[in-house]
C-alpha cells in the first residue's frame, strides 16, 4: 500500500481520527475515517495512539503519521470529553510537552522525571548530528570570544552573595 499522508486530524462527534492521503500511483487525494472506540475522558492517550497505529486495518495508512501526533490528537479529544475549551486543552498539551525552565528536576518523582526526560530526548534527537550524516565532523571547535558577551544571561543577581 503506497500512500503519502497529507493531513491528520480529529473529529469529535462521532469520535474519529481522519487522515487525508494521496495514492502514490493514482495521485488522487483520499480521506480515511478511523473511528475511535472505547475511549473516555479517563483514557490514556499514549496507549490509544499506540493501539491505533498498530491496528492491522489502519497500520499501513498511518506509517508516516508520528505516534506523537496521534497522541496529541487523542489529548484534544479527551479535553473535549472533559468539557474543556480547545484553548485550555492546547495550553495543557503545551505544558505537558515542554520543559519548564524553572522546574527543579531533582525534586520530581521517577514517573514525572521520566516524562521530562522523554521530552528532552526528543529535542535532542531533533538537533542531533549523527555519525553517518554526510557532513559529520568529530571535532568541531567554535570560539565564542568573551569580550563579545555584552548581554547578561539574566540569571545572575546583583547581590554580592550570589553570582
Amino acid at each position: 500500500m503506497m500512500c503519502t499522508a497529507k493531513k491528520c486530524g480529529i473529529r469529535f462527534q462521532p469520535p474519529a481520527i481522519i487522515l487525508i492521503y494521496e495514492h502514490e500511483i493514482k495521485g488522487k487525494s483520499r480521506q480515511r475515517i478511523m473511528p475511535v472506540r472505547n475511549f473516555s475522558k479517563f483514557s490514556d492517550c499514549t496507549r490509544a495512539a499506540e493501539q491505533l497505529k498498530n491496528n492491522p486495518r489502519h497500520k499501513s495508512y498511518l506509517e508516516q503519521v508520528s505516534l506523537r501526533q496521534l497522541e496529541k490528537l487523542f489529548s484534544v479529544l479527551r479535553g473535549n470529553l472533559r468539557g474543556q475549551s480547545l484553548a485550555e486543552t492546547m495550553e495543557q498539551i503545551q505544558r505537558e510537552t515542554t520543559i519548564d525552565p524553572e522546574e527543579d528536576l531533582n525534586k520530581l518523582d521517577d514517573r514525572e522525571l521520566a516524562k521530562r526526560k522523554r521530552i528532552m530526548d526528543e529535542l535532542f534527537e531533533k538537533n542531533r548530528k549523527k555519525k553517518d550524516d554526510p557532513n559529520f565532523v568529530y571535532d568541531i571547535e567554535v570560539e565564542f570570544p568573551q569580550d563579545e558577551q555584552v548581554l547578561s544571561c539574566g540569571w545572575d543577581t546583583e547581590s554580592a552573595d550570589e553570582f
Binding site: 538537533n127 565564542f144 568573551q146 558577551q149 548581554l151 547578561s152 545572575d156 553570582f163
Partner: peptide, 16 residues
Amino acid sequence: IDDIKVTQKSFNFAKK
C-alpha cells in the same frame, strides 16, 4: 547551545 543563542551572553558564576 544548539537550541538557544546564548553564546553572546555572560554567565557570572564562571567569572566569579
